[in-house]
Each structure stands twice: as C-alpha cells, then as structure tokens.
C-alpha cells in the first residue's frame, strides 16, 4: 500500500503518466485507488498527433496495470518520510512472512 499512500499525497499535482504502449499523458492527478488506477484531469497528450482518439478528451481514467512510469513533481515528495515509509512497509512485510 506504500505507493497507494504515496500517490494520494500527489493529488492536485501535475504529473505525466507514461503507459506501456508509449503513450504519455500529462494532467492533474485527481485520484488514485488501491490498484493504482489513476484519474487525471485537464489532460493533454504529449504526442498528440499520434493519438487522435484523445484529442477531444478532457479527463482520463488510466488502468494502473498499464502504467510504465509516473513523472512526479520533485518538490511534492518528502524523501526522508518516504524512506521511513518504505522501511515500515518492508518491516511489515517481513513480519507477515514470518
């Protein structure tokens, strides 16, 4: 749930989602769910000419499983906190494994 928790803090930030089919969409992150499905608002497609089917689209719901990268705004990430969150996650998983 670490990434779920993490992405929740990026709501209302501009992100770029790169999908596994190379399509990149930039937009305002509106919501994320436990499957890391992502809802973007006010989107624009990075290579618009190549993807005419998205020309009239204003917001998208992206299936989490097809996301390759998420480009984040660096200043919206608390690295120290994220490190600790990661440690906690790792510890929790280690406990579960026991």
């Amino acid at each position: 749930m670490l990434f779920f928790s993490f992405f929740k803090t990026l709501v209302d930030h501009e992100v770029t989602i790169e999908l596994k089919n190379d399509l990149s969409i930039r937009g305002t992150l509106k919501s994320v769910d436990q499957f890391l499905n992502i809802k973007l608002d006010d989107i624009h497609v990075v290579d618009e000419v190549k993807y005419p089917h998205l020309s009239a689209v204003k917001n998208v719901f992206i299936r989490g499983s097809v996301v390759r990268y998420v480009h984040l705004p660096a200043n919206a990430v608390d690295t120290a906190l994220l490190e600790d969150a990661t440690r906690r996650e790792a510890a929790a998983q280690a406990n579960k494994a026991k």
Binding site: L54, S55, K58, V60, F61, R63
Partner: peptide, 21 residues
C-alpha cells in the same frame, strides 16, 4: 472486463466534432 482496459477518457462534446480526421 476491467483488465482489458487501457484507459477511459471523457469526451468533450463540444470538441469532438472539431476533428481534422
């Protein structure tokens, strides 16, 4: 079935007809 979906996009009804296609 959800797993087959890549994305859903809401179509802007005003823009959809202004396509160069």
């Amino acid at each position: 079935r959800g797993e087959n979906v890549l994305l859903l996009g809401e179509i802007d009804l005003d823009k959809e007809d202004d396509t160069p296609l």
